[in-house]
């Protein structure tokens, strides 16, 4: 309990919110890093997954890439990137590593969603004379949207977690408060940073959960 009150005192001290190492700036860094990387990852993964799903090709790759992604430690990738020339680009290693870890869940979920669209509906669309493009955008994509969005949510949570680990390899974001706390041997600071990160991650998860609930009925998954 003592540590929690100390951590609370640390969090509510206005001096800790200001400046480049302050909570405000770290929070902004974390948010920007997460959002930017989520957008980049979606731009990379979703078109590939939708086309592969539409053509019904590359399924083994799309599904197994998630399992492979789980076996590779984010921390190792971050440090490896840091020691390559990318390491001199400031946030370069963080951005590349974050995108690498967000792409697999996006790819897998969008691909599976596309393939789970009822085949008879797709055949009906083809029978009506729809072109491939029309089928993709007017039939398959709308029907697979719940799965696609589940992938986006998983990717977003993954991004928040990886962005935290990025601090271990010198990246910015809320994780820096934790690493700084360890370096200063200040348990209240470590715990305060951890609470911020945990709350941030839960809010991200909560926002997606809420969006799913508020979405029109036809967008909701069977979950």
């Amino acid at each position: 309990m003592r540590t929690l009150t100390d951590a609370w005192a640390w969090l509510t001290d206005s001096a800790h919110w200001a400046g480049d190492d302050g909570i405000g700036h770290r929070l902004l860094q974390h948010l920007v890093l997460t959002v930017v990387c989520l957008v980049i990852s979606c731009l990379i993964a979703l078109p590939v997954a939708l086309v592969l799903g539409h053509l019904g090709k590359g399924g083994a790759l799309a599904v197994n890439i998630s399992n492979a992604g789980r076996a590779v430690p984010a921390f190792a990738v971050l440090v490896l990137l840091l020691l390559t020339p990318i390491g001199s680009w400031g946030e370069g290693p963080s951005v590349v590593a974050l995108v690498l870890f967000a792409v697999p869940p996006l790819l897998t979920n969008a691909y599976v969603g596309m393939r789970e669209v009822d085949r008879s509906i797709v055949q009906a669309a083809r029978g009506m004379g729809m072109t491939g493009r029309q089928m993709l955008f007017h039939v398959e994509l709308p029907l697979s949207l719940p799965m696609v969005l589940t992938g986006v949510r998983i990717a977003a949570v993954q991004l928040v977690a990886t962005a935290t680990i990025a601090a271990l390899a010198g990246g910015g974001g809320l994780g820096r408060i934790i690493t700084a706390g360890f370096n200063l041997a200040s348990t209240p600071m470590v715990v305060a940073g951890a609470i911020l990160v945990a709350v941030f991650a839960l809010i991200v998860e909560g926002v997606f959960e809420l969006a799913e609930r508020l979405a029109p009925v036809r967008l909701r998954g069977s979950r």
Partner: peptide, 17 residues
């Protein structure tokens, strides 16, 4: 599920005390 959402670095840090 909530436990799983908490990033690993934060989880280890929360257990530090």
């Amino acid at each position: 599920t909530i436990l799983y959402t908490i990033p690993s670095l934060a989880m280890f840090s929360l257990l530090l005390p």
